[in-house]
């Protein structure tokens, strides 16, 4: 049973970055801008929040105010991601450039910049920025005692609990409300579906697209931190393609926040089965094959493809996404 608890808790911690970043991508695409730069934005957010946590650890202040420091780190990740994403908005909204070009440039810049900056801060060749262990939420935070042999629920909840998890859930709830229940959400969606119509009733399409991209930058920045925590060995100038997976999760989730949540959990579950394959008893072990773990690591991608085949006939992207809005064109 304890292995099941482990799997559930690992699934959740890997689903959180996917959820955050895919929601971010959704804001951007709902406003009409394809954000292919999610990967790069994640790296920037992860870089600065990791540096912040590292600094909090070194100054000695962090360990005594662990969750406050973590909340600040989340904000640092979000804000740096937001600032970085404005470069995409500038290119693709204001200057009406091809959205893949700006995004590709940002994706290329981020990992290189992260390596150069980590070297500059930590010394040559020191590429890994270690994250302190005190950021984890433990039983002690709730006044509980840490038991020697945790039961099912205790293991499931506290094995991998970080502040990013509740924050992501709150953001999900907020997003559902914002997109479907508010004037802002309606306007944002209008800009992604038919910007000319939106403009004709006095909505500032450029402004809303800036806001859409900026929110996606904020969420992707936090997602970068969430990924670094999930990966567990510190920040190494990469988010291992999670920005692109998030894009897949967003499409898989059909640009709908609740379905994105489901898709993120689904993708994370198969990812975890892939990496836990050795310790799950009922899975065949393919003992005659060298590196058989790679067979399981293919699983999430293959399963996603199969499911996409069945679901994407109904898939409907925002109609105007990817097309720069030009007031003068018909």
């Amino acid at each position: 049973m304890i292995i099941l608890a482990d799997i559930i808790s690992a699934t959740i911690i890997f689903a959180i970055p996917l959820l955050l970043v895919a929601l971010g991508g959704m804001y951007s695409e709902r406003s009409g801008t394809i954000n292919i730069a999610l990967e790069g934005i994640m790296i920037i957010g992860a870089l600065f929040s990791s540096l912040f946590l590292n600094y909090a650890e070194k100054s000695g202040w962090g360990a005594s105010h662990a969750q406050l420091a973590m909340l600040l780190a989340i904000l640092v990740g979000g804000v740096t991601g937001l600032i970085y994403s404005l470069l995409l908005a500038l290119a693709s909204v204001s200057l009406k450039a091809d959205q893949t070009i700006g995004g590709t440039a940002l994706n290329l810049f981020a990992p290189a910049f992260a390596i150069v900056l980590s070297w500059a801060v930590q010394g040559q060749g020191q590429t890994t920025i270690y994250i302190p262990t005190w950021i984890k939420i433990t039983q002690a935070n709730f006044g509980l005692t840490i038991s020697e042999n945790p039961g099912f629920w205790e293991a499931m909840i506290f094995k991998n609990l970080y502040l990013t998890t509740p924050v992501a859930i709150v953001i999900l709830a907020l997003t559902i409300f914002l997109i479907y229940q508010t004037r802002f959400g309606l306007r944002l969606r209008a800009c992604g579906e038919h910007p000319q119509a939106a403009d004709s009733v006095g909505i500032n399409v450029y402004k809303l697209r800036y806001i859409g991209v900026a929110i996606s930058g904020f969420l992707a920045g936090i997602g970068g931190l969430a990924f670094t925590i999930a990966a567990g060995s510190g920040f190494q100038s990469t988010v291992a393609g999670y920005g692109f997976f998030a894009l897949a999760v967003m499409i898989f989730g059909n640009w709908n926040p609740i379905r994105i949540f489901g898709a993120a959990l689904f993708f994370a579950l198969f990812k975890v089965i892939g990496s836990y394959s050795g310790s799950i008893p009922f899975l065949p072990s393919f003992s005659g094959i060298k590196y058989s773990q790679y067979l399981y690591q293919m699983l999430p991608y293959i399963v996603t493809m199969i499911i996409l085949v069945f679901t994407s006939k109904k898939s409907r992207a925002p109609k105007a996404e990817g097309i720069p809005y030009d007031k003068g064109s018909r």
């Binding site: 393609g241 692109f244 894009l247 058989s292 790679y294 067979l295 293919m298 493809m305 996409l308």
Partner: peptide, 27 residues
């Protein structure tokens, strides 16, 4: 034939290709 965005399929097949090639070469 299935209306799946080529960006997603490409990304998925990058990883499937990597792992498949690794297993094949190793064996």
């Amino acid at each position: 034939y299935f209306n799946v965005n080529e960006v997603i399929t490409s990304i998925m097949f990058n990883w499937i290709g990597l792992f498949a090639v690794n297993v094949l070469l190793a064996n």
